[in-house]
Design a protein around this nucleic acid. Structure first.
Lengths: 371, 371
DNA sequence: TGACGCTATGATAGCGCTGTCATGATGTCA
DNA sequence: TGACATCATGACAGCGCTATCATAGCGTCA
């Protein structure tokens, strides 16, 4: 492949006679003070056109709308493209067309397993579509989101994918009039900017508490970390479920990121503060894993004397001993479907349903299966 | 923020008198059949220049090299920029300058915790530098890497960051003559394309085995999954260490991705096949977690009757009961330092050392602390 | 005082591509 | 056969910005 690229350069230089010397300087000078910035040293549309003996536009068309070019011409152009190893310049294309093939994605985290799965879905969603992904990481900071969104929007993306529904009013207004499709993921909402795919965190947390109640646990505590908007809504859910059952609120919350170590620490704190605690709903799975380890360290029998429910159903929940009950969320699906809906819209089609509730499912495992 | 954007549009249209109508059309038609693709509806350099009463070039300079513009002019331009809420068009900038602010990053996975940490380091590394990150995901497929690398290279990135040292000869040759700085991470190597930051997987795996030997474990097995090039080199390391100690090779390897569930399955398989096994080196931490769970399920006492060593020192290793000994690798650092070195090179400076061995550290914990 | 260098600014010509409109060639139907 | 539609192709202008070179203004020094 390389050989052909370099061959192309030679061909280019030899043909036009204007690239002499640039090819050589291409590498060394690029870093410091190159002689001339003009021309990139790569074959251009015009080079392909000259070689194929047609106009530049025809090449452009042959590449983008082959049906508008006669088969014979198309074939000659294809040969020229192959010979020069021509690759279109995306920047020039964007500038000229006013359209880009970049889909902007704004996520609150890259390290959190939850978003790793979303990200995988996103990349799988664009695979083969020709769209590129540009990722922004807000680190759970609303101000960072408010800064990134206009920045991304200014780059004329083909579409944008956002996390959650808590954009600032200013950001929201900007995006509503942005002129490209937008999808919000990870939450359910009645009033999306454009399209939305998610589930109810309130309902999911409520379901977790009700499951513990159904299993006969009564002195239920809750662990939470890094209370982003999704966590806040889960909190409303577990509080509602506990209050509905007439049970007191026993929470240990940390603003720090969720982790197994944090789970152990919070579980330890709550167990010490609330003797007789017999179950924990952990608003993230890594907290649940930590809680399980804390029980093991204290010699507490799970599930006989203590129930544990996690959230998100990460892979390791099933492998744990005992395996841990968790609320399964469709993270990969949200990323993938989000991109698919955007691509549909970019193509000018209306999605069947712009507001999708993917729901959740409580996966019952050994950690709450007592008696 | 939005208010100012929209205010700027009004101001723009009102002031120059040339944008009338564009402002209006900018939005509605954008999705389907816009009337005219020309002009984006956003203020341009020329608009700012007209408002400030200077030439377009002066505005361009004021933005990029403020020192070359007189303070008075600079101030007028700054006001015009603020009033119009002007944001430069990166595509046009790239096209005109032949330089881009995109750093291409090619990783084998986005979901693997290892690369999530690398990614975080990468994003932290570019924060505040003005560079953008473009991520490619090869899914551990060398062919996908061979496809992505030229594609990325063709987009005139400012630099590229690659994973590992196993690029195809063609890819390597292409990148060697690409003319932008390149860093390879995750591995140690004598012959980098340009710069390299990593550690010896061979040495690290060898150290893990030697640690088990030092703790008195003798019937040592090894678990591995998804044998990418890094895993292969670890494999050479553990094989060398075992052979050096005159011990037989007891491996359970899967081509599937590493996971806790996979760890349980492989541990189970090897324990059944090799009765009397007394330790496992798990070439990934999630395998180690699964191995620990399998021991718990079988009632095997760790570390007394069975030692476990993991690899990468993920956060949960410290929280596990017993806590799990693991080989710490500097994943975040590799991502971050990689970007920092690239940025240095883009700025024309030579890094102190283009070949960095970040090493590794065996973190001894309870899972191998017996007697 | 005039040659010289320096600073601040501008005019011009692109970067590589696509939208628009024009043109010639071909096919179709009455 | 001629009016008209259709198809394939091209010329031209321009997307928003920057590199290059030119120029005016100013201070400096012999």
């Amino acid at each position: 492949m390389v050989e052909t690229v370099q061959g192309a350069r030679d061909g280019d230089a030899g043909r036009t006679g204007t690239t002499q010397g640039r090819t050589g300087d291409g590498r060394a000078g690029a870093q410091v003070g190159r002689m001339s910035q003009r021309r990139s040293g790569r074959p251009t549309l015009a080079d392909v056109a000259a070689l194929a003996g047609v106009g530049a536009i025809t090449v452009s068309r042959a590449l983008r709308r082959p049906d508008q070019v006669s088969p014979a011409t198309r074939e000659r152009i294809a040969q020229a493209v192959a010979e020069l190893n021509y690759i279109p310049d995306p920047q020039a294309r964007i500038l000229a067309s006013g359209r880009s093939d970049v889909i902007g994605v704004i996520l609150p985290s890259l390290t959190n397993n939850v978003y790793a799965d979303v990200l995988q879905g996103i990349y799988d969603g664009v695979a083969g579509t020709g769209f590129q992904i540009q990722i922004g990481n807000t680190r759970y900071d609303p101000e960072e989101e408010a800064r990134l969104a206009p920045l991304f929007a200014s780059q004329r993306p083909a579409a944008m994918l956002l996390t959650g529904i808590d954009q600032t009013p200013a950001t929201r207004a900007l995006l509503e009039s942005a002129g490209f499709p937008i999808v919000q993921i990870m939450e359910k909402g009645d009033d999306p900017i454009d399209m939305i795919i998610g589930f109810s965190h309130f309902d999911a947390a409520q379901a977790a508490i009700r499951h513990l109640l159904g299993r006969g646990y009564r002195r239920i505590g809750v662990l939470g970390a890094r209370m982003d908007p999704r966590l806040m809504r889960r909190q409303e859910g577990w509080r509602a479920a506990l209050s509905e059952a007439g049970l007191p609120l026993r929470e240990a919350i940390s603003p720090e990121p969720s982790s197994a170590t944090m789970g152990r620490a919070l579980a330890s704190r709550l167990m010490d503060a609330e003797p007789g605690l017999d179950a924990l709903f952990c608003a993230n799975d890594d907290l649940a894993l930590g809680a399980l380890f804390e029980c093991q360290a204290r010699g507490i029998a799970v599930p006989r004397d203590f129930g544990i429910v996690g959230f998100n159903d990460l892979e390791m929940m099933a492998a744990a001993v005992p395996s841990i009950t968790s609320v399964q969320t469709r993270r990969y699906r949200m990323g993938r479907l989000g991109i698919e809906m955007l691509v549909e819209r970019i193509a000018g089609r209306r999605p069947a349903e712009p507001n999708v509730d993917l729901g959740f499912e409580l996966i019952e495992r050994e950690s709450t299966r007592r008696g």
